[in-house]
Design a protein around this nucleic acid. Sequence first.
DNA 1: TGTCAAGGCCAT
DNA 2: ATGGCCTTGACA
Length: 264
Amino acid sequence: MNNGAPPPPQVPFASLVVPNNCSTSGSSTNNNIHWSHVADNNHQWNCSFPRIPPSPDSALGGWSTPSSNLSRHNSDASQRSFSSSSNNTTPPSPSNSPLLSHNRVVNKVEDYGEGDQPEVLLSSNLTSQGISRQQLINSPCPICGDRISGFHYGIFSCESCKGFFKRTVQNRKNYVCLRGASCHVAIATRKKCPACRFDKCLRVGMKLEAIREDRTRGGRSTYACSYALPPTSSGASHAESVQQSQPPTWEIPNLLKLSNETFY
DNA sequence: TGTCAAGGCCAT
DNA sequence: ATGGCCTTGACA
Ligand SMILES: [Zn+2]
Ligand SMILES: [Zn+2]
């Protein structure tokens, strides 16, 4: 809510971790995340609709498609390319159930020659051209700009952001930004404000459901739930824009539920 | 088997 | 707390 508020020079970069019961209204939106998922022994999460394995389709988070729903039956999308249809008739409505926010198929797998493909991935490119996995993996991490190491928790991201997201969710961290929740997250500053970093993780499409509550390793996950990402106004090219303080009305995921620990 | 995304380990 | 590297394991 403090958007636009010039960051006080006093506090360089800082964030606090507060107990979950401490409703951190205002800046950080982290505390508004409400989710629910039930994991069974097979890394599957019971949602309101058929389980669909995750796939790198539309996986570039931030500057990717407006909705991050995953919609393919085969999670092995390596070596493929993706073309997204620019046909987005339904702007994700945050009002309805996030779990059902899945709607149209945004991306479709296609075979794409490895010929002339743009190096820089922009929103416009993604929504109008075929994107190869190679391109995706060669593009910068949508969260911090570092090198992408693979497909993690629903998007292509770097190794550090993968680890950060995992730790944050697993350990039920609840970071709070002290600078207005609009810190720029870059490779050089990503350590400064975990609150804004985590916020960005979610904004660009990392999935909470991808974190296994039972911590089982290996195998393949089949999460499909996707909370509607903030519209990101289909015109916005950066995921950098200030979050639209869209108070989601999701259910609280177990992993994100309370933690009375106080860090920092 | 190979792939590769999820969790674990551990030096910083 | 961070992040690079390792191990795991369902699926193709
Ligand atoms: Zn990153
Ligand atoms: Zn911040």
